[in-house]
Design a protein around this nucleic acid. Structure first.
Lengths: 333, 333
DNA sequence: CCTTCTCCATGAAAGGTTTCACGTCCTGGC
DNA sequence: GCCAGGACGTGAAACCTTTCATGGAGAAGG
């Protein structure tokens, strides 16, 4: 620290009141703009407070009011490029409403998720925005009592913000079919996530209608492919692959290239999410764009609403997705 | 919310004490493992507390002790892929020590930075880890009074965690020179950041010794290139480019490709930071690796130390960097 | 001139915890 | 059998704020 004088004590409201020659109550009212204080007095108090560099002690305030002015944001994995953009918007939107955000990263484990939630509740957040790892996290019950909005999963009882995953899956499949692909493989996200299942199911049923589903495997939301996924790719039976996430798509493209094949010449790939990497990748990835920023902002809005009106019926907001066509899909002639 | 019964009130310590038939003081001691409580009583109290689902009210605790158990992490821009990894490690390390972290993203503006810091101080963080945008942020004085460790910049008076930027710049330049490049351009990061200057200066002086510095321009830490940078690249006078960050390098490679040139055949590029994208990019980017995770962990360690021993002399830790050679540099024969 | 408001201002309680200072009881030493 | 001292427990203050209930003074109306 710059100075070693240990306690650069902050002025307390009592001190402000004394310095201003008014009562504690008046000082409080003046500073919070509540209660009834004469115009002149208020200004005087404010001036004195400013001089003393008064900063309200949030802990004390929180204790009285029960509101901490903090919200929690729980995401699975910050290094998944899907999340930073989300977090950024949440943080900004929250700040615009005067809230700070506790961010926590659960690193893909349900126990971490539970610990994270507990820590947050203990620290006294006013509300939580939660992007769950799986549908059945033990956390469902834990969050009881704290206003919560859930992203991505349609957890019963919570306010929910989602994208139209089924439509995304369908779009991806149709795009491939329209390009003349017949033998299509699907690498979907983890079984445990309903959003991943929805993407996959819609894609699969669309493929089945007019094409041929050659395989369907699962992979974590990661660049690294699991053995069964690698094996599926190794079989070279599909001319096109639908993936449950851009990260998986990129991992798959790497693997395909490792096989000596080319994307999109030999195999076409479509992703999901439209993370920033998607367009930077070579070839640029055709993918399903979700309006993450809008969703994040909506989550904050929903949380703010919920925090002030706890009784309201839950809401579920579903955002539209759209296919963005780039270079990873080959049109068969 | 799952239930609409408004207040699922949490048990208070007083209630625990009463239910256990002991005094408030004993209950407090038992739960905090301090003071003197008989083994039997302690266990009994703990049991009762568990039954009642007692969770200490952190606001009250914070008010008494002055410690909130929260730390703040201030980074410039979460969407810059350099930061999520850093944040993740900080969050984890902090949690391992029982701290929650307020994360805030200053979006590159110094005013935001100031607001963010104020909000954090008001919320009562016990300490702050700060990755400043510029050397002259107005924040230098603001943080006074809150234990703070600064990342990346050597701000006087603070505990500092850095990487050996000068060495990185030198390494990059030497790598290029060793590969036979002579006409070398430098795109460094923003003027305002001393770390960017150090990288550039070392690179430039090394280039000057044994090669030819054809131009030197600046760019924000972003994929988007500023006009003067584009102009420099357009001049096609350099066979190799040293950049102040991987993000800039990727932006530059895009631009170079747009010129109809190839990386590395026509122009070699070296980055700085070794962000996750670097190895995914085609061509994979040769860059300077900083041990971000270690630095993040060190920052938390340093902060913890500082929070418990405010008087200690400041420390500055400098991490070594190393060049990781990939495919974006051509060896001239 | 007196009553009745309204407007300002204040004292004091409350909120949940930690911790100091003190008291009681039992143990062990002589 | 007494006393010193340790172990265990307790009451109460303090932390800083919000907010309720109350009081006084001045203005307006009769």
């Amino acid at each position: 620290m710059a100075k070693s004088e240990d306690p650069p004590r902050r002025a307390t409201l009592k001190e402000v009141a004394k310095a201003a020659g008014v009562s504690l109550a008046s000082a409080s009212y003046a500073i919070n703009g509540a209660g009834s204080v004469g115009e002149a007095t208020r200004e005087h108090i404010l001036k004195v407070a400013a001089e003393l560099g008064y900063r309200p002690n949030q802990s004390a305030k929180a204790m009285k009011t029960g509101k901490t002015g903090a919200i929690g944001l729980i995401v699975p994995d910050l290094t998944n490029p899907f999340f930073p953009g989300l977090a950024q918007v949440v943080i900004q939107a929250a700040r615009a409403h005067g809230y700070s955000v506790f961010l926590t990263d659960t690193e893909g484990s349900t126990e971490e998720e539970e610990r994270a939630v507990n820590l947050m509740i203990d620290h006294g957040v006013d509300g939580v925005i939660w992007f769950p790892i799986a549908d059945d996290g033990p956390v469902g019950k834990l969050i009881e009592g704290v206003p919560t909005v859930v992203l991505d999963r349609n957890l019963p009882g919570y306010d929910v913000i989602q994208a139209d995953y089924a439509d995304g899956g369908r779009l991806a499949a149709e795009h491939l079919l329209a390009a003349g692909h017949v033998n299509i493989g699907v690498i979907s996200g983890p079984h445990a996530a309903s959003s991943a299942r929805q993407r996959a199911e819609a894609a699969i049923s669309t493929v089945r209608e007019r094409g041929n589903l050659v395989w369907h495997v699962h992979n974590a939301y990661s660049l690294d492919l699991e053995p069964e996924v690698a094996k599926a790719l190794d079989s070279r039976t599909a001319t096109a692959v639908i993936t449950g996430a851009d990260l998986i798509a990129i991992g798959a493209m790497r693997h395909i290239r490792g096989l000596g094949q080319s994307v999109p010449d030999d195999v076409s790939v479509v992703g999901f999410d439209d993370i920033p990497w998607a367009q930077l990748h070579t070839p640029a990835l055709t993918t399903i764009d979700m309006p993450v920023e809008d969703m994040a902002a909506a989550a904050v809005e929903a949380l703010i609403r919920r925090m002030s009106a706890r009784g309201e019926p839950r809401r579920r907001v579903v955002f539209n997705v759209e296919l963005v066509s780039r270079d990873s899909v080959r049109v068969l002639t």
